[in-house]
Amino acid sequence: MTSPADLSVVDPELSVEEARFNDLIAADSRIEPRDWMPDAYRKTLIRQISQHANSEIIGMQPESNWITRAPSLKRKAILMAKVQDEAGHGLYLYSAAQTLGITREEMTEQLIAGKARYSSIFNYTTPTWADMGAIGWLVDGAAICNQVPLCRASYGPYGRAMVRICKEESFHQRQGFEILLELMQGTEAQREMAQDAVNRWYWPSLMMFGPPDDQSPNSAQSMAWNIKRFSNDELRQRFVGMLVPQAEVMGVTLPDPNLRFNEETGEYDMSEIDWTEFNEVLAGRGPANAERLRRRREAHEDGAWVREAAHEYARKQSERALAAAGAVA
């Protein structure tokens, strides 16, 4: 793990490549796959991008839980499109990570072996339809706040992947808002369902921004490298600022009695976040950690014969093509 202290280690005989890298970062330019980069920068990016890709893939599960039971055909179509987008995001991100010298197989193996992380938020379960609304509104909303600045991340392939992803995430957040809005304008049972989901997802979504700034070990280095642009707490504030007026439109209550806009600081005051739960889920003791990995592993293992068949067929085809070319020659 890299500590901010590394920044102060200045090699008096900086290599040409390293000086160029530093210049590019200082000029807020993009680093591209063939550029020289410090090992720690490469490792940080591999870790971050693969975690992000894994989160997209695992994140398909809590929502795919409701595809078969979506309560209208329109909602079913939108939900299918959304979960399918997430698979697409996983694909772009794995591709971006591959430009840094790791294979998709390695990343998949690390994920199903439980060695790679993914966003803890997906270890919560989705017992009701309103969870589709809350995930879109809160989880995707938090993801957007986190991810929009990543469109300007210094590593080119990552930034470009994020531009496309953010456009789709914005649609995801709106469809979540619409689901909740529709429920809040519906029957008593529907309103209760919506409020219950917001109660369950609000705090976990705030925790998606990570620990408070003074306890976030990797942040300073990532900010110095122009990978991260805003601190965890800054982004959390922006997110709450986005939620409050939307919650009013819907008529849902955000479950924090101390939440109010502070005219003096220009920020939202809020209750202390209970990090015990976050740490529990992070440590593998969330509602669905085991289930999420089990299902990913099963899908991967059940599909092994299909991937092997495709590989073998492609091999035979190229052999035939070679033989045919040889016969012609």
Binding site: S64, V83, A87, G90, L91, Y94, R295, A299, G303
Partner: peptide, 16 residues
């Protein structure tokens, strides 16, 4: 029902 269960990600997308 295949979405998030397909043999590879490309098939999650295609079947979806």
């Amino acid at each position: 029902m295949w979405i998030a269960r397909a043999p590879e990600l490309e098939e999650d997308v295609a079947l979806g």
